[in-house]
Simulated assay, not measured.
Amino acid sequence: MIIGVYGTIGAGKTTISNKIKKLKFKVINADKISKDVLNSRDIEKQIKDAFPNAFIENNLNRAKLRKIISEDQNCLNKLNSIVWPEIKNQISLLIQTNPGNIVIDAALLPELGLEVDKYIRVKANLLTTLLRVKKRDKKPFKETYSIYKQQKQRIKKYDLNNEVIIINDIWTKSITYKQLHKKIFK
């Protein structure tokens, strides 16, 4: 079984994915894969051609790149067109070489067009998101809000039949394994 966990920045996707992992699933984290993809020479060259201002002395400055894409939807789309095909290839390869139950953790997972048995959308309110990301990444609220807003607009367009929603706010009690198992296998 392949489960896709998606949602906006700071929603708690990784927390939910790690809980699913304890139900004997292997976790594929798209953020980790994207970091490796960004380090590949071919992808880095394409990014440098598209976003020369994101480089300092020929080195990609990820903070600058994040700022650029958080401020401009067209820049985000351009970056996604460069990195997402390779991320999809890497995830597909991991699925093929790791038989069994898998959970894929990716903010905008449905856009990859992978075969997924069930989607879990993790939602959190804006305040929760801002606080989590500030604590985790030390990002300014404005940058986080911009990413959150872009992702939320894209997610609204998804029309998925095989989806369950988990609310994961700071006010929500911890989701138990029994609740999670019931949501996944209902």
Results as ranks from 00 to 15, higher is better:
2 I>Q: 08
3 I>L: 04
4 G>S: 09
4 G>A: 10
5 V>M: 13
5 V>G: 04
5 V>R: 09
5 V>F: 08
6 Y>L: 11
7 G>W: 00
8 T>W: 07
8 T>L: 11
10 G>V: 00
20 I>C: 00
27 V>Y: 02
27 V>L: 06
27 V>N: 03
28 I>Q: 04
29 N>Q: 11
30 A>R: 01
31 D>W: 03
31 D>T: 00
32 K>R: 15
33 I>M: 10
34 S>Q: 13
35 K>F: 02
36 D>K: 15
38 L>F: 04
38 L>A: 08
39 N>C: 04
39 N>S: 05
39 N>W: 11
44 E>K: 14
46 Q>L: 12
46 Q>D: 06
49 D>A: 14
50 A>H: 07
52 P>H: 15
52 P>N: 14
52 P>S: 14
52 P>C: 14
56 I>Q: 12
61 N>K: 06
61 N>C: 05
64 K>F: 13
64 K>I: 12
64 K>M: 14
64 K>E: 13
68 I>N: 00
69 I>E: 00
70 S>P: 01
71 E>V: 01
72 D>F: 03
73 Q>Y: 09
74 N>T: 13
75 C>M: 07
77 N>M: 10
79 L>I: 02
83 V>N: 05
83 V>G: 04
85 P>F: 08
85 P>T: 05
87 I>L: 13
90 Q>E: 15
91 I>P: 11
92 S>C: 13
95 I>M: 01
95 I>W: 01
97 T>H: 15
97 T>K: 15
97 T>I: 12
98 N>T: 03
100 G>I: 05
100 G>K: 03
101 N>H: 14
102 I>D: 09
104 I>G: 05
104 I>S: 01
108 L>F: 06
108 L>E: 09
109 L>W: 06
111 E>G: 06
116 V>E: 10
117 D>I: 03
117 D>L: 04
118 K>D: 08
119 Y>S: 09
122 V>C: 00
123 K>E: 02
124 A>C: 06
128 T>D: 05
129 T>D: 07
130 L>Y: 08
130 L>G: 00
131 L>Y: 12
132 R>N: 00
132 R>T: 00
133 V>G: 03
133 V>F: 00
134 K>E: 13
134 K>W: 10
137 D>S: 00
139 K>V: 10
139 K>F: 12
143 E>L: 13
143 E>Y: 03
148 Y>F: 11
148 Y>Q: 10
148 Y>L: 06
148 Y>A: 03
149 K>T: 09
149 K>Y: 03
157 K>S: 10
159 D>K: 15
159 D>Y: 11
160 L>W: 01
161 N>E: 07
162 N>V: 05
165 I>R: 15
165 I>S: 13
166 I>F: 11
166 I>W: 08
169 D>P: 03
169 D>A: 07
171 W>E: 15
171 W>V: 11
175 I>P: 08
175 I>V: 07
177 Y>T: 00
178 K>H: 09
181 H>W: 08
181 H>D: 09
181 H>Y: 10
181 H>K: 14
184 I>K: 10
185 F>I: 05
